[in-house]
């Protein structure tokens, strides 16, 4: 990986991600038009000065819908990541600290989750719980748990062999205290990088669930649902399918670049590599 590309990825990823978050936050207080306002007489208009991205099949402003969709994508994926990390990281720390049976149990549990194709499990979960934003978060979050658990465990195991941890043990600190005071801080950079990548996977997963109708419910806007609505209109209004798709691609691209950039900057394992 060339040195020249590193800051570029970080900068581009950072700019796109900031834009995404800004759009998401902005949509909570202001959108160019009210997304609840239907104007059926003017539906499916193309882009114009008044409506930069045109109007959808109910005559709603597409730009406003995409902003609201950003808010939805951000909240669902962010909470799913926090959920996954909130459960996965403590489990990983526990497994690394206790080893033995606890470790084995945690790892086998992650095996079970990983044994399911992600989307299939998400569909089963939403079928049982019903569609909606909260259940989409659960369905996506379930997959983040083992990812964080394994990453935390793996990294923590190597930290447990470090001299400063041995010193802390010699000083009589218990495993729980060592985990919190010495292990967890050392994992921060690895976890931040992983969180960014899981975040981007979450955005795609949320779009997929909404596309099959299992995500956030109307009238709330989501990019996946916009795509699903647009698909039947492909023959008469092809642009309808283009804008939400581009929003997904740009957001995911930004998050991936940010993740890569952060990894190059933060991950100590890459130190000294060309």
């Amino acid at each position: 990986m060339s040195r020249a590309r590193r800051p570029l990825a970080l900068v581009v990823g950072g700019i796109i991600t900031s834009g995404f978050i800004a759009a998401a936050l902005l949509s909570r207080i202001w959108t160019p038009y009210d997304v609840a306002a239907f104007d059926i007489d003017h539906r499916l208009q193309g882009p114009s000065a008044a409506h930069w991205l045109g109007l959808d099949h109910f005559g709603r402003d597409v730009l406003s819908m995409i902003l609201v969709g950003a808010g939805n994508a951000l909240s669902v994926s962010l909470v799913a990541v926090l959920l996954g990390a909130g459960i996965g990281v403590p489990l990983g720390l526990l497994a690394a600290a206790r080893r033995g049976l606890v470790d084995e149990l945690v790892m086998r549990a992650t095996d079970v989750v990983f044994a399911f194709p992600a989307l299939i499990l998400a569909i089963l979960i939403t079928a049982a719980l019903g569609p909606g934003a909260i259940n989409a978060i659960i369905a996506i979050g379930v997959f983040n748990v083992p990812v964080f658990a394994r990453l935390t465990r793996g990294s923590a195991l190597s930290l447990w062999t470090r001299d400063y941890v041995l010193a802390a043990r010699a000083a009589g600190k218990g495993p729980a205290r060592i985990s919190l005071e010495h292990i967890a801080p050392g994992l921060a950079s690895v976890l931040i990088v992983q969180a960014t990548l899981q975040f981007s996977l979450g955005v795609i997963a949320e779009a997929g669930l909404s596309y099959v109708g299992l995500g956030v419910q109307p009238p709330a806007a989501s990019w996946g649902k916009m795509l699903a609505d647009a698909q039947t209109l492909a023959a008469i209004a092809p642009l309808q399918a283009v804008f939400p798709g581009l929003a997904i691609v740009i957001t995911v691209l930004g998050l991936n670049l940010l993740g890569d950039g952060l990894r190059d900057r933060l991950d100590p394992r890459l130190d000294g590599e060309p």
Binding site: I204, A207, A230, V249, V252, N256
Partner: peptide, 9 residues
């Protein structure tokens, strides 16, 4: 970054 279902559409 491209969702495969969008590419499919």
């Amino acid at each position: 970054a491209i969702p495969n279902f969008w590419f499919a559409v």
